[in-house]
């Protein structure tokens, strides 16, 4: 597994890119939302002291969850818009920023899975 700092950098830059892309395409509020989520990664660098590694992991984990939720939301909106075909209206037009966000969402989901497996999820034991 890559170091927490490298992971933070990757997610920060990728989410900043997607957020900026939304703003340039005219979707200001959605762009700001992605930028807010990218701040989660940025603030991960401010974690110092003894448990800093764990808390940096926390920032990658939660930031990835938020990005995954947002990309899932775009996907769900697109799927719901398919109902428009019944009433003869157009379906949702996926922009470049939407595609980028969904790709980042896939990577975030992989991140969540990997962190739960290696850094967060406690081992299971039988209980009486």
């Amino acid at each position: 597994m890559k170091s927490a700092a490298i992971q933070l950098w990757i997610m920060l830059i990728a989410s900043l890119l997607v957020g900026t892309c939304y703003i340039f395409q005219g979707d200001l509020i959605f762009g700001i939302i992605i930028l807010v989520f990218s701040m989660v990664f940025l603030l991960g660098f401010r974690e110092f002291g003894k448990p800093s590694y764990s808390y940096r992991i926390a920032h990658i984990y939660v930031g990835s969850i938020l990005i995954a939720i947002t990309s899932g939301y775009i996907l769900a909106s697109f799927l719901f818009s398919l109902v428009n075909l019944i009433i003869g209206e157009e379906i949702m037009d996926l922009k470049i920023s939407d595609i980028l966000l969904m790709l980042l969402g896939v990577y975030s989901s992989y991140n969540i899975y990997r962190l739960r497996k290696n850094a967060i999820r406690p081992e299971k034991k039988d209980i009486e």
Partner: peptide, 19 residues
């Protein structure tokens, strides 16, 4: 005991004083 649990991780960020 584990290093950080899922709940601790989520709480750390969701109740963060800035974000």
């Amino acid at each position: 005991e584990s290093a950080i649990t899922s709940m601790e991780a989520i709480d750390h960020v969701f109740t963060h004083k800035y974000i």
